[in-house]
Design a protein around this nucleic acid. Structure first.
Lengths: 229, 229
DNA sequence: TATTCCGGATAGTGTCACTATCTATTCGAT
DNA sequence: ATCGAATAGATAGTGACACTATCCGGAATA
């Protein structure tokens, strides 16, 4: 289903060591093999096979996507397929990975969402961000903005120019880093990890900032007490 | 379990209208009632009850947390309990909400993670962000940084100063907006929506930026073609 | 009066990510 | 050579999750 990892044959091991080195239990490894997330080892006999460093790395990638990124198995498979697909263009591979990242599209398509989608598309055009128009991120962003508006948040896409500029700068840095990787697979993997794990890191930083700032606002360092009684 | 929503008695409705106005099916509403996510309506007879605007709003909040934030029911309940708890301090409520937002802590606590945690704590101290030391975000951030390092990302917390500054500014704006809401519940709700939904919007913007930038890098507008053959 | 709707209770469904068990080998230490 | 541990591969079972379906006696409504 996914598969094909080769190249250097270096050190090989059996499943028990693969398990201990990757931190994934043997039954779970078997499950990932069955599900096509992990390439089969090199068969040496009817019931023997060896695994190598690529398998360790791939397992760690799988766990990162599941544990940190919170992706379901199906998305992990789709993402790995995109990585391993023969797509010549790096960008096509990135695009496939991005599309595979998002959960299934919600079915309800009200006119409100269609309008919000349109607004997002216009915003993207104005920013000269060329993105496939069926990118799941567009709909998700539209839904988020719609929800914020429904709850009375006085915020619109046009207020997010600064944020978008920052995101663009970060993306430029990340893409450049990804492209400097030794091969195509490494580039796509790098980009994937960047998207999912680094994105998660940013989310957590945002939450910590909110907690810290709300603490500061609640009991300012100088002067008045937070609440008298 | 959670509950208590009152104040204005204005317009009341029965469950069918609550369903159509909130977009949540009647059986699901009943489920949320059973699970204690939604306050019971006002009983007018053995098998009759009325609901009001607060219920509509609360249902929309629940759906936003589930659909956009991707929270499990248990987290939604915890978050709503934090909102409705009698905590006088706004910040305590925010903190509870933040803590309730994160998935259960992963059990494995290796020395590596402990070290990464320490680094995060030191970084927070250096930034003068005072955060409860048991905040789940700390561990999640530590894990993310550790994973990035394991995959050869040459990035450390100290490289995230700019990002953290930006997050702090945004947080200041958000907290100020939240505090300007009419009452405590509205403030906490605002903060919660901001954290979850606005955070999701930022994530999507980041992904769109990555896709757009990688497209640009792959086939630059002027000059050379992407790949010759 | 008849049909629809209601709250409340109980039971069932489908998905997900494993986890357990079994068989028939094969390895590896004695 | 022997025997217990490990292996590949197949099938079945588990527990959590978020609903969904059905039923009941009573109330609202046309």
């Amino acid at each position: 289903m996914v598969l094909s990892v080769q190249k250097v044959k270096g050190y090989v091991m059996k499943i028990a060591e693969l398990s201990s080195r990757s931190g994934v239990s043997v039954p779970s490894i078997k499950y990932y093999l069955r599900e096509g997330l992990l390439a089969a080892g090199h068969s040496t006999a009817a019931n023997q096979a060896t695994y190598d460093e690529q398998h360790v790395r791939r397992l760690r990638l799988i766990r990162a996507l599941i544990d940190i990124g919170g992706l379901p198995i199906a998305s992990v498979r789709a993402v790995l397929e995109a990585i391993d697909s023969g797509s010549t263009s790096l960008h096509d591979a990135f695009g496939s990975v991005m599309h595979a990242l998002e959960p299934a599209p919600l079915t309800d398509s009200k006119s409100e969402i269609a309008a919000a989608r349109k607004a997002v598309l216009a915003w993207l055009r104005a920013r000269q961000w060329s993105v496939k128009p069926n990118a799941p991120a567009i709909r998700r962003l539209a839904e988020a903005m719609l929800t914020l508006r429904q709850f009375g948040f006085g915020i619109a896409l046009d207020d997010l120019g600064g944020v978008a500029d920052a995101a663009e700068q970060m993306a430029e840095f990340e893409v450049a880093s990804a492209r400097s990787q030794i091969d195509r697979t490494a580039s796509v993997e790098y980009m994937l990890l960047g998207t999912v794990v680094y994105g998660q890191a940013l989310t957590e930083i945002r939450r910590l900032a909110l907690e810290a700032v709300s603490a500061r606002a609640d009991k300012p360092a100088k002067g008045r007490r937070a609440r008298a009684h």
